[in-house]
Design a protein around this nucleic acid. Structure first.
Lengths: 123, 123
DNA sequence: CTTCTCTATTAGACATACTCTAATAGTAAC
DNA sequence: GTTACTATTAGAGTATGTCTAATAGAGAAG
């Protein structure tokens, strides 16, 4: 039997702002593999790090959207990396994300309030 | 130009727990159209109510998953309705959702903390 | 009777943001 | 040469939506 979504394996839409935050904190840029590893710092990645494939595709998409720029960079201990860094638009995007996530938190609190409300009314 | 996701139009995964909550509070059951209207009470639906098609499909899926049961019911002022009500598994699912959403809120707070942290370090 | 509005559901096509499986390839240690 | 770590990509599938559009009952307005 499949596990129900209510088990809460992951919450979407947190990866983009997390990537933007990591890159803001690392002006020299980061490559996909390095980003993946640093995502451990975020609580929403504790259960399991996001899928590599998905992350790499997201980075390409964000570059196409003008939020990131990238350059190939040779590596000492492996194949060449593609290093991503924030653009000006990426920085603007990050600050808008902060407003949106605050709003999301309010929505979550509201929903949790609805869920609790009638539970206590029933008791 | 398309608007960026950072604008925060909506947050996924809130519809299922909201539907379960509405049905918990209405033991006689509700039909799709009625659920749609009551969703206005939830803050995450303020901007725009979810699409009818999506809601009806969700209800069918949740019934197939054993979370809801349904029955046809004639209507005074329109075509017959399909009235949905919670099953025991649906109630269990709802209480697990509460735990998951509390966890989501912690993850969101953590992410917001990361976003703020280095902003203040920079100033 | 026709048209409009409100009620009520369904179908098809698309978008987004993931996941899982798998392949490819460089470097270094053993 | 096999294993381990680094690094990226491709293909298929899933979950959760959106938009457009069709169908259909019932009551009111003209």
């Amino acid at each position: 039997m499949k596990t129900c979504i209510c088990a809460g394996t992951s919450l979407d839409r947190m990866l983009r702002p997390a990537v933007l935050t990591l890159l803001r904190d690392c002006p020299k840029g980061l490559h996909g593999y390095g980003i993946e590893q640093r995502l451990e710092e975020f609580q929403f990645c504790r259960r399991s790090l996001p899928d590599f494939t998905g992350l790499y595709r997201l980075l390409k998409k964000m570059e196409a959207e003008g939020l990131l720029r990238s350059a190939k960079s040779p590596s000492d201990n492996g194949p060449a990396k593609r290093v991503y860094a924030l653009t000006v638009r990426g920085k603007q995007c990050l600050s808008r994300w902060r407003m949106s996530l605050l709003n999301y938190r309010d929505m979550l609190d509201d929903l949790l309030g609805h869920m609790r409300t009638t539970l206590s009314e029933k008791s």
